[in-house]
Design a binder for these strands. Structure first.
Length: 346
RNA sequence: UGGGGCGUGGCCAAGCGGUAAGGCACCAGUUUUUGGUACUGGCAUUCGGGGGUUCGAAUCCCUCCGCCCCAG
């Protein structure tokens, strides 16, 4: 009998994951990854509740339960990365980094050393034969966040939630099994900070100064309180009114300027070509003479693209214009249902 | 100082005698395991101040205040 260590976050999905694997005959061990426990002003960290829920489900299922304390590594690999990226004027995706460094590396290695044959997570995605595929539930598909997992890690990973067509099925199964997390609300926001906004989080770690907001004609139309807080395509939070909404089209970190436009067709708001770095391919590198489907943000519709590699930079020509492509964010390629890999927008 | 124009919520802006459109911003919520987007809802008992005419005024009259433009 194979032993699977299931990452249990205290949510429905990972609860059902553990239950399903038991039914499938695995020896299941539940693991709560303690990644972040820090309270922030006005928003206590929900880790204790989540931990309790994970533990309760483990007890309900009658499986062993462990806690892995990854706080130090999480801080270094995910939080520091995130803060550094923001400081550099980019917009990072901490959850992708969390999957790459913590769930499918640290957790995997720790579990294997601990006696596991495999690990499992509650992701809406499918890991089969070292390949990563989209979830059957197209709406919830989380493969975007997983493109930096390695083939080696995927060979050791199970994602049983990926076969469900709807979230309702997962919930009703949880209900049928009487799991205490059956009705728990989906989590959102940065995985570790909970509902706190990114801005409130950043304010704890960086100092910022007021700067100019410049419109498409080069006119200063207002002041912001730190260019670091803004990202491409953003509309709210500028506090400048009068006529049409303003969208961020760029930043100048040296001058601490935020550039905006009221023109929805502004060239700087749309891209037909991307430059990617930090490339990561899962099975083998994509072919340069073939077209793939790509998305530059979670849940965005897939668009056709062709790739061209020179040195370590991948140039991607897209079939249609994509709005607000943002440096620091990831572009992920698909070949049918299979995730090919991707890279980070320069 | 003369001549003209304007002053409506934080911003832009309709209304020009019948009891305050709309947009932006903001706030709340929905969607969402990043950021962002989008969607829904909320948001002026009051129209620069004061007085008057009228059944009734932001809309007419008087006056004061503040802007803007053109003159000389």
């Amino acid at each position: 009998m194979k032993t699977v260590y299931v990452g249990m976050s205290g949510g429905v999905d990972s609860s059902v994951t553990a239950a399903l694997l038991m039914q499938q005959g695995y020896n299941v061990v539940g693991v709560y990854m303690k990644n972040w426990t820090k309270d922030l002003p006005g928003m206590p960290c929900p880790w204790k509740d989540d931990f309790q829920d994970a533990k309760r489900v483990a007890v309900q299922l009658g499986i062993d339960f462990k806690v892995y304390d990854f706080q130090a590594q999480y801080l270094q690999k995910v939080v520091d990365y995130m803060i550094d990226e923001y400081k550099a004027g980019r917009t990072p995706n901490p959850d992708i980094m969390c999957n790459q460094e913590v769930k499918f590396k640290l957790f995997l290695e720790t579990a294997l050393d601990d006696g596991a044959d495999l690990i499992a997570t509650g992701h809406y995605s499918r890991a089969t034969n070292g390949e990563l595929h989209v979830a059957r539930n197209q709406d919830k598909d989380q493969s975007y966040f997983l493109y930096r997992a390695t083939e080696k890690a995927l060979k050791k990973s199970l994602m049983p939630i990926g076969v469900f067509k709807t979230k309702e099925e997962v919930r009703s199964l949880a209900k049928k099994l009487g799991l205490v997390t059956a009705e728990k609300k989906d989590s959102q926001g940065i995985c570790f900070v909970g509902k706190v906004g990114i801005r409130e989080f950043l304010e704890q770690y960086v100092t910022s100064e007021p700067g100019s907001i410049i419109n498409q004609h080069g006119r200063e139309i207002g002041q912001h309180d730190g260019a670091i807080f803004y990202t491409i395509g953003q509309r709210h939070g500028l506090s400048v009114g009068g006529g049409l909404p303003y969208y961020v089209i760029g930043k100048n970190m040296d001058k601490n300027e935020v550039h905006v436009t009221t023109d929805l067709d502004d060239k700087k708001l749309w891209s037909k070509q991307l430059k990617l770095t930090s490339l990561h391919w899962i099975n083998q590198a994509p072919k340069m003479d073939k077209s793939y489907m790509v998305r530059t943000r979670y849940r965005a519709p897939l668009v056709e693209a062709t790739l061209k590699l020179n040195k370590s930079i991948l140039t991607v020509d897209i079939a249609e214009e994509i709005r607000a492509v943002t440096p620091g964010q990831s572009a992920v390629f698909y070949d049918g249902s299979r995730v090919v890999g991707g890279g980070v927008v320069v």
